[in-house]
Amino acid sequence: MVVKVDVRGLSCPQPVLMTMNAIKSGQSDEICIVVDNDTAKENVCRAATDRGWTLSEIRDESDGCAITIKKGKDKELGYLRFFEK
């Protein structure tokens, strides 16, 4: 089951804080974070990869962007390289 975290409209550092809380809760190995600005997107991606999670998908939506992260490190796929794709 994918845990969904909606951080749209929230200011720093809540997007990262809520992502970290979802990671720490251990509820799921897959989390989808919905952000609505590039700052939150960068911060969430940076924090997740720092914690040893992998970015599996970044999907643009009408009112933001859905970032899916998976447990486990993929050394080949830093968050910056993901943005370039």
């Binding site: 720093c12 550092p13 990262v16 804080l17 970290m20 700052t39 940076r46 924090a47 720092d50």
Partner: peptide, 16 residues
């Protein structure tokens, strides 16, 4: 996104 307060806050909160 340069922020002098966020610099300290993120280190305290997440060790970032």
């Amino acid at each position: 996104r340069f922020c002098t307060m966020g610099a300290i806050r993120d280190f305290v909160l997440f060790r970032h």
